[in-house]
Every structure is written in structure tokens, then in C-alpha cells.
Design a protein around this nucleic acid. Sequence first.
DNA 1: CTGTTAGCGCTTTCAA
DNA 2: TTGAAAGCGCTAACAG
Lengths: 358, 358
Amino acid sequence: MATARTAVPVAVTLQDVADRAGVSTATASRAFNGSKDRNVRAELRARVFAAAEELGYLANPHAQAVARGRTDIVGLVIHDVSDPFFSSIAAGVIAEAEREGLIVTITSTSRDPGREIDHVVSLRQQKARALVIAGSRTADQEALKRLEAELLAFEAGGGRAALISQRMLPVDTVTLENRSGAKALAVDLAGLGHQRFAVLSTGSKLLTSRDRLAGFRDGLVRKGLHLDPDNVVHGEFTREGGYAAMQELIIRRADVTCVFAVNDVMALGAAAALREHGLAVGKDVALAGFDDIPTVRDLSPALTTVRVAAEELGRLAIGLVLDEREDGPRVRKVHGEVVIRESTPSPTSGRSLSTALS
Amino acid sequence: MATARTAVPVAVTLQDVADRAGVSTATASRAFNGSKDRNVRAELRARVFAAAEELGYLANPHAQAVARGRTDIVGLVIHDVSDPFFSSIAAGVIAEAEREGLIVTITSTSRDPGREIDHVVSLRQQKARALVIAGSRTADQEALKRLEAELLAFEAGGGRAALISQRMLPVDTVTLENRSGAKALAVDLAGLGHQRFAVLSTGSKLLTSRDRLAGFRDGLVRKGLHLDPDNVVHGEFTREGGYAAMQELIIRRADVTCVFAVNDVMALGAAAALREHGLAVGKDVALAGFDDIPTVRDLSPALTTVRVAAEELGRLAIGLVLDEREDGPRVRKVHGEVVIRESTPSPTSGRSLSTALS
DNA sequence: CTGTTAGCGCTTTCAA
DNA sequence: TTGAAAGCGCTAACAG
């Protein structure tokens, strides 16, 4: 006679396991959580495990969360998962978090500082163990203050927060050395013989963009060159932004031999704009980006850029927030590495964006 | 005299709010959850809200989860967030879920069917409200059976599951019409004048890959053409896989004028392999992919492919799992759209991969 | 409409 | 070691 196994999806609870093992729920709980074979006699422990196995017991993480007051959740706040740079960071965060048995929740902000703050609040409410915010922080002081307050509240609640960005708030931070990377790039490009540059940047709010622009300028200065302010054009931090900015440069017939887009995605847009005007990247004008997202090596000509180990950024951030040390905010610096590819050959004499257009 | 506000991070609870508002926790709870101004008198409701506001109350979602037996969590199981196709799906899922006030947790499987199942188990344990698995399902019957069992268990527990893949399990599914898309592509390529094709595919386990291959063959047959089995080479479903497969074709000096990679990422790898051998995509051999990931339009020559609205796939999946209807598994079909770009010009007479190599 | 009173499933004192 | 019992914060019957 088959026992009438109920098909009703009543989850098996710790109580069930305890009953079957003939112990109290307290003991069963200890068997699962107690540090190895302390607390619980080996025999009982074995009985509990056996019972759990037979019943297919799965602990209810929410009940654990409410009882313990903490969770295994790590929140990742990101601008846009489909941006290749950020999705690589996400991959690093997820890989590292899963190694530690943590669960990653991803939320996206679409670059809205307000939503960023909302997400931090939500993460505090969820009692997330840790939180990582990846992305170019804004220079908007107002929003920054509020974010700082929320981050501090989050940490006061027992969570750990880390930023992947500039070191601008008193929490653990993984910084990308944007300035030095852009500087090195400028030096190398100048070394190639370029003298007249344009930069595709964003409005001043994005620090990443500002730092890269500043670094690039540093590099030029070092080589005794000057960046004409008129040749710094603005656009969004996206492909479309790069497209629009380059468009402007073209219309203006800027007299430059090399264009630096503050990130690869913008460089892609810039390349598209050039193509549409019948201009060849590398031949008519040199083009460089920043980030080394996976696809730019597949461009032809392949894009000169500054390589950033994006996954590593994510991994480092998780490493920071999971490290229990209590000695205040730490900083991990990650350097970029200039990668010269075919998009930036040495300039041909007399050849520049403006001459190519005429 | 400033009142000594405690700095201790004791979260404010519903009890605190109720106390301050002078009502019971039950009423406070109703004020928050009750459908609009039913259940609770407007005045009390206002008092509760005011108290919550003053105290900065945030409901503890875990306590709610344990009390309610359900959550606002949506699990997204994906192979690799950093793959552009999947990250676009993820973006769609996140956008749609956030609109509904749901929280998305992402886990990655690295294409290991075993981990996929583990994640489903974990989601059931978390009492996730819904779950979306995106990715090419395996043809491994064993793993499939186990996945099905877990998915059913998940739904038995009150959750809703959806797949973005072939319609192969009895749960809501968003299918990409791989076969018809590949068929249309083949027809168009043949229409361009190509007659001798090669396909970069994967081993037989991935249904997506199999369907695209089959569809491509269908299209050729329709045009009275034949795909030489020797010209179907295998590689992983990644850039590296495409690179290796193309490598093989090159070594073999295959006599073809057009190569179809079953996805864009593989096509990127194939393009790299061609470049390394001094071959020009479009001139020496035509190349086409599938998916239309954002970057392929930035290749030069831009890649011919089949456009898939990846974000839409994610959005549709969330739409399915959030739709409360109870009439069994539904299917939403999404069609691809052939996009002919410069990578597949009409063949030049006498010109093929093999001749270009000699 | 509102308060009382049980829980939800788990952890953690506190005694034994 | 182990168990009884008291929570964790919230929801939901059940009365009134």
C-alpha cells in the first residue's frame, strides 16, 4: 500500500526535521549552524542531517533573516546591466559572491542619482549584508550628501558598503585610476606624433569623465602640448553621446588629427559618425577610447584604449565588503593599461579631420 | 535642549509606528497593505503614515515574507551576465520587474545545467514569486528531467516560472523563432548569389544552435542548395568558439563564399580569425551572425545578422510570470528579423575562402 | 473599522 | 550537550 504522500506543497520546516530526528528545533538548528561538531553530539547531528535529507529540507532564508537580523544578500547597484563595462563588473561581483554563498540582487539606476539612493534605502530595508555601487559618481553635491547619509545609515545597520568609483565618500572604495590612465594615453599618443587633439567628454557632472579629461590634458602638458578648449565637446556617456559629439566636431571641421573619447562606448558612436561622413578611422583621423570593453578589439581598425580589468573591479569590491576588518574605509586602486591598436597610427603630414573633410 | 537621539541603529518597527500613532500593529499593518482607504478609517491611516514618516519606518521584507509566505523576489538565472545578448535580456527583466516593484536577483550558471537546477532550488527556498531562466537549454535529457521536476516543484510552491528558450518544458515560455529566422537569413543570402556555405555551430547539446543550423539548412533547401556536412564545423557558443571553428575552416581551405555563425559572438571570433589570416570579411568571404547584439553594427564591415529584440524577450518573460491567469503554460513567440549589412555582399565570381587563401 | 491573539520558521538565551 | 521558551517583525483570523 503506497502511503498517501500529500501533493500539497507544504514546505518542510525545521520543526519537521526535528520531529523526525527526535530532537528539539533548537538542537536541529544548532546542528546546521553550530561551528562544526561543537554544540551538538555527533550522533544527534547525524540524525538531524539524515532527517533533513529524507525530507528534502530547505531552510527558509527569510525566517533566518528575521531571526538573525542579517542576511546573505549582496546588493549591486549599477547604471545599466547591458552596458558592457558594467556587465563585466557585474560578472565579477556575481562570481565572487557566489563563491561565498551569497545572493546578488541587481538594481539599475539609469544614471539617476535619486534612484541610486532609493536602492540603497531598499537594500538597508532588506538588511543586505553588503552593497556595491558601481558607476561614475556624480559631482552633484546635493545628491552626494544624501547618498553619503544613506550609505552611513546602511553601515550603521550592520552592512558594508563599497563604491567602485572615485574615492569620494567615507566607505570602502575601489578606484579606477582614470587620471593617470588618461595621462599615459595622451603621452603615448603624443609620442606617436599627434599634436592637435579633440576630446569627446560629458558634461561636468560625471567625475569619471572629468578625471579622464583632466588626465589627458596632464599628459599633453607633459609633452608640451595644449588642448584647445574648443575641441572639447560634450555628449552623453553613451554610444549616442559619442555619436553626437563627434558629429559636432565634424560639422565644425575641427583641425585635429586625433580624437579621444572618454570611454569606449562613446568611441564606438564616434566611429559610426565618422563612417557616415565617409571618413576612415585611423586614416583620416585617429581615435582612442577608454575601458577596453570586449568588443573594441573586434573593430577594424581595432581601437586604441586604456584597458581596465572590469571583472576585477567587481571582485575587489566584494573582497572589500566581505573582509571583516574594522579599520575604517579602505581603498583599492586599479590602474589602467594603455593599449595602442590600429585606430591610432602616427599622423600623416597635412592630414587631419578638417583636411579630410574638404 | 537637543533631545539625545540615540545613534544606535535599531531599526524602527511596525510596533514603534503603531505606538506613536496610538493604534494596534494590526491597524498599522492594514494602513500600509489594505487596498486604499478600505479597512482603515482615513484619520487613523493618516496618523499611521505620519508616524511612519516621522520615524523613518521601513517595512522589513523578510518579516513580511515569513508572515505572508511569499515575496517580491524575481529570480533571473542566466549563463553569463557579461555576454551582451544575455545582459540585454537581463536589462529587460530588470526594467520590467522594477516597474512592478519587484526585486531581481541574478545568478549565473556558466552553462552548467547542474548549477541551473541548484539555482532553481535556491529560488524555491527563497520563496521567490517568479523565476526566469534565460539561455539555450540543453538537449541533455537527464538534466532536463531534473530541471522540469524542480520547476514544477517551484510552481507547486506558488511561484511562477518562465523560460526564454525553446518550448520544451511545461512552463510559460518565450521562444525565439530560431529556425525561421535562420531560414530567412539563408534564403536572403542565397538570393544575394551565394551558393557554397559553411556554418559555425556548436556541438549538438544546445538547441538554439541546432535550430539555427536546421533553419539555415531549410532555407538553402528552399533555394535548391545543399549544405555540405563537412562545412559544418563546431565550436563553443562563445567568441573563442567562433574563432576556433573558423580557424578550422581556414586550415581546411573550405571552398565556400559565405559563412554563417550561429550567433554574433561566434561571428566576432570568426572575424578575428579571418583578420589574422589576412582575409577581409566581405571581400574574401561573406560572414553572417545571429542576434544583432549592439556591437556588431559597429564592426566594419558591419555584420549581417538576424535581429532579436533581446530586452523584449526579458520584458515578455516578466509579463508572463506576473500575469495571474491560470490556464496552463503559455508561449510567446518572438521573431527575428534579417538585417543585411556590409559583411555579406554578393559573391565575386571565382572568389571564395579557398581561393583567397591561395 | 479596530484590537486581540495566534501564528510564520528560525535563532538564541536561559536553565537544566 | 540539550530542551523549553522567548523572541525576530509582520500578517491574518477572529472577535467585537
